[in-house]
């Protein structure tokens, strides 16, 4: 029974890609609605990322399933248990991939998508991002995870990574320097919200409010074996650096160079990935499997 952690890197990638795809769709949605000013190629980039990212994530999940390749006919059975969050995820992700692919096709053919389809897609995108967090937060036996702030943190992180990835792809597609103040402002508020939620989440764990095991998990992240990864890769590079860049562009008149903003976007994607990795890696079961009287 004392096995290594059941979920490995593939699940981290799956959670990350689920969030990235959902966030990219929301970016495209925002771009079409004109929330981000006029950035050429942003909507296209968002649609180009959304369906493939989630679809690749799903394929990775199938690879990760013990029976995924041995008995693939068992996979449709994952729709059986409507009380399982994983079943909800299966439904949400399947629908999302279908809707996002349809959007990509419509965008490609320059056909205007019907309004309800756009709203349905946005709803499914939010559901996808929230699901990746909810999958973890319903697990009572892992005290660090059993906190419904995780879906919100993952939603913020999904919006942020999706926006960054879309900005990077849009830049790659169009190769033009654009005025990004509106995007930077939106991005600043998303990362700020994510930071606050994450701070509350870690504070709940480290204070012992979520029990001793959650405290131990949080200690692993903050001062333990995961600390170098957390502080350097996630906190400094993935959170503080982009937050500072976007804050500068939001509140100062003199704007940072476009390349610096784009490196901030790369940092955001890295931060989003390391966030999932940290939360999966820090999982400690409520009971260690040993007897301590």
């Amino acid at each position: 029974m004392e096995q290594s952690a059941p979920w490995g890197m593939l699940v981290v990638v799956y959670l990350f890609l689920g969030g990235l795809g959902a966030g990219a769709y929301l970016t495209a949605y925002g771009a079409e609605k004109g929330y981000f000013g006029t950035i050429p190629g942003l909507a296209k980039a968002g649609y180009l990322i959304s369906a493939p990212a989630v679809a690749i994530g799903c394929v990775l999940l199938v690879f990760d399933l013990g029976q995924g390749l041995l008995k693939p006919w068992l996979i449709p059975g994952m729709l059986m248990n409507l009380s399982s969050v994983m079943t909800w995820g299966f439904v949400i992700l399947s629908l999302f991939v279908v809707v996002a692919t349809l959007h990509l096709y419509l965008h490609w053919k320059n056909i205007e998508a019907p309004k309800y389809l756009l709203s349905l897609g946005a709803f499914l995108a939010i559901a996808t991002a929230v699901y990746t967090g909810f999958l973890l937060s319903v697990i009572k036996a892992v005290p660090l995870w059993n906190n419904h702030l995780i879906p919100l943190i993952f939603l913020a992180s999904a919006m942020s990574t999706g926006l960054s990835a879309s900005m990077l792809l849009a830049h790659y597609l169009k190769k033009v320097k654009v005025e990004t103040t509106k995007v930077d402002k939106a991005h600043f508020y998303i990362i700020a919200a994510e930071s606050i939620l994450l701070f509350v989440f870690l504070a709940m764990a480290i204070s012992g409010f979520k029990g001793l095991v959650a405290q131990q998990s949080a200690q692993n992240i903050i001062i333990g074996s995961l600390a170098p990864f957390f502080w350097i890769i996630f906190f400094l590079i993935g959170l503080i650096a982009p937050l500072a860049i976007f804050a500068h562009n939001t509140f100062r008149e003199n704007k940072l160079s476009h390349n610096l903003v784009l490196s901030g976007d790369i940092a955001v994607v890295l931060g989003g990935f390391s966030l999932r990795y940290l939360i999966i890696a820090a999982a400690i079961p409520a009971w260690s499997g040993t007897l301590l009287m």
Binding site: P6, L65, G66, G68, M78, M86, A141, W145
Partner: peptide, 27 residues
């Protein structure tokens, strides 16, 4: 026979009573 080997239950069980077998790739 129904298990797809997603290992979600391994996290859910508070008593760690479930085992994943590397040979059958099921719980």
């Amino acid at each position: 026979g129904k298990c797809v080997g997603c290992k979600y239950c391994l996290y859910a069980c508070p008593y760690q009573a479930l085992s994943y077998g590397e040979e059958t790739k099921t719980v």
